[in-house]
Write a protein that binds this DNA or RNA. Structure first.
Lengths: 229, 229
DNA sequence: TGACTTAGTGTGTGCTGTACACGAAACTGG
DNA sequence: CCAGTTTCGTGTACAGCACACACTAAGTCA
């Protein structure tokens, strides 16, 4: 069935930059393209927006279809509208970025694309379209935002050690933090609940596990509290 | 001439939130709609994106066509994609915000829309479409960004007094600042050039005029400097 | 010249950022 | 079980910054 309009219009797509964290490094989920253009190249998961779904819905749908990821943190990033960014025709893409912890979402087999895999941020293959630019924008946004909004917790399991939390910030911000100052600061904020559980399966003294208390955080924000790392 | 596509696609528009500052208050430029839907209602300047222009170009073009504004600071804000935001059909809108100083751009007669005018931010009429939501998002963004990027200067004339600078921040942030601390801080950053000119036409002691030195600012940013009010 | 308005300036106090080191706990391997 | 290895968890001192605060100087106007 064909669709006819009085004026020509760009196609509208969404693309998602999915960040994941494991013990080693910050990673990004990529999809190997099964069709032209850029067949065989790695690309961000994404696809065209349907008429009966919002942009957020489209991003979530594509994410699930192509990577199996559900219920992750997802936020609009920026809209890319360069004229030749897609060689076929004019495609404007609303980019999103997502955060999830790698433990819960290992190498999920993709249903839609020919392959999906996590890539180390420092060892990326050449990407299709303008996806390297989108990715760069996403990294900058993540770096900026993680410092004044507690979104970093989305990259960790629900219960985590303070060292894991610190490593997460160090990987994103790409610099080392002082252990004692870091702990003093985050504990002083009062948004972490200390559990009575300890880390398991490590070959050394086990660390205490903490949980992010979002309810307290939100209450404090209303009273003028400012998260800031 | 009609245009036919295999799959249906949303229409793509841009809308601009233009902020202006005069001695009294922070203002927004609105356009009175001359056609349905929302005929007679006030709305943000904007229009549809053409195939041969980028999103930024579309925003600048619409801004000039509808308000006469050229060469202002313009930055992408957010993309709004609610399904029923336009009663006619599905329209996704990439919103921008712009900053300019009211002195240089008085009540320019609009060419395209039936009328354009500056509105006090605290006394806004009912707006068309979801433009109140876009506006709210723009105000939040401006509030957040003005504190750690020196974009506020775009709202002032090229040469300004420190009091004008302070008033600008007070109006945007909606709280009073301490005069001595403010001056100490901004002068201490070293990004303002003191001119040898004084304010003219005021009925009291004239204040010294300063200029924002963007070259120095950029150089300092490269060396790790962080603007922060 | 007196009244009025805004410009321009410095100090003290408390808090926050930051630099920095070591003993305790738990596991490993011989 | 002992020695070695790894990570955990903790406190202090100093410097720089945020913030509160008030008066004199300069210019205009009537």
């Amino acid at each position: 069935m064909a669709h006819t309009y009085e004026h020509p219009r760009p196609a509208l797509a969404v693309d998602c930059v999915v960040f994941g964290l494991d013990d080693a490094d910050l990673k990004v989920m990529l999809i190997q393209r099964g069709a032209e253009p850029f067949k065989g190249r790695w690309a961000l998961p994404g696809g065209f927006v349907r008429l009966n779904e919002t942009l957020d819905d489209a991003a979530r749908r594509e994410l699930e279809e192509e990577t199996g990821l559900k219920r992750v943190f997802l936020e609009q990033l920026y809209t890319f509208g360069a004229i030749k960014r897609d060689p076929r025709e004019r495609v404007v893409s609303v980019a999103y970025y997502a955060l999830c912890n790698l433990r819960d979402h290992k190498v999920q087999a993709a249903t839609d694309a020919s392959d999906a895999a996590w890539f180390d941020l420092h060892r990326l293959p050449a990407l299709a379209f303008d996806h390297d630019e989108i990715l760069k924008t996403a990294v900058e946004r993540l770096r900026g935002k993680v410092r004044y909004v507690p979104i970093g917790f989305e990259l960790l399991p629900r219960k985590f050690t303070l060292t894991q939390l610190q490593r997460m910030y160090e990987k994103i911000l790409d610099r080392e933090l002082d252990k004692r100052n870091f702990r003093k600061k985050v504990l002083g904020m009062g948004i972490l609940d200390e559990t009575d559980e300890l880390q398991e399966g490590v070959a050394h003294r086990a660390a205490r596990l903490y949980r992010f208390n979002e309810a307290i955080y939100k209450r404090m924000v209303k009273q003028g509290f400012n998260f800031e790392l």
